[in-house]
């Protein structure tokens, strides 16, 4: 459940942003969660629901999660393929050395505040 400590970090960041913009209430938080980020989205949502409700600033905040597509890159020919799961071989050169191409991010994209 490292998601809880990540939610705590997010709430601190939201408090800083709200102070910077003179806002009293956060209405929406958009977060990108990469498929290789190691984050369990349901745990993160649960943590956010519980912890955000304890603070005036985020009591009414809605969490929107964006999941970018899984992409793998061939180490030989560099071909990048968007796919549902780790492919056995490269669809271009048929070699087997494929590594994840990005997708490990946990990025606060956008915040809407009043």
């Amino acid at each position: 459940m490292h998601e809880i400590s990540l939610v705590q970090g997010l709430l601190k960041q939201l408090a800083l942003l709200a102070a910077e913009h003179g806002s009293k209430s956060v209405s929406k938080v958009r977060l990108e969660v990469g498929p290789h980020s190691g984050i369990v989205i349901d745990s993160f949502k649960f943590g956010f629901e519980v912890l955000a409700a304890e603070i005036d600033l985020t009591r009414h905040a809605r969490l929107e999660i964006v999941i970018p597509p899984l992409r793998y890159k061939c180490c030989y020919c560099g071909h990048v393929r968007q796919t549902e799961r780790l492919p056995e071989t490269c669809s271009q050169c048929a070699k087997t050395l494929l590594v994840p191409d990005g997708g490990d991010g946990l990025i606060l994209l956008q915040v809407e505040m009043e």
């Binding site: 990540l6 960041q13 942003l17 209405s27 991010g105 946990l106 990025i107 809407e112 505040m113 009043e114």
Partner: peptide, 18 residues
């Protein structure tokens, strides 16, 4: 400076940045 103004802030920062 008006309270209640709706702000949309593009942050684009990793939660792990700190």
């Amino acid at each position: 400076v008006s309270p209640g103004h709706h702000h949309v802030v593009d942050v684009n920062q990793s939660l792990l940045a700190a």
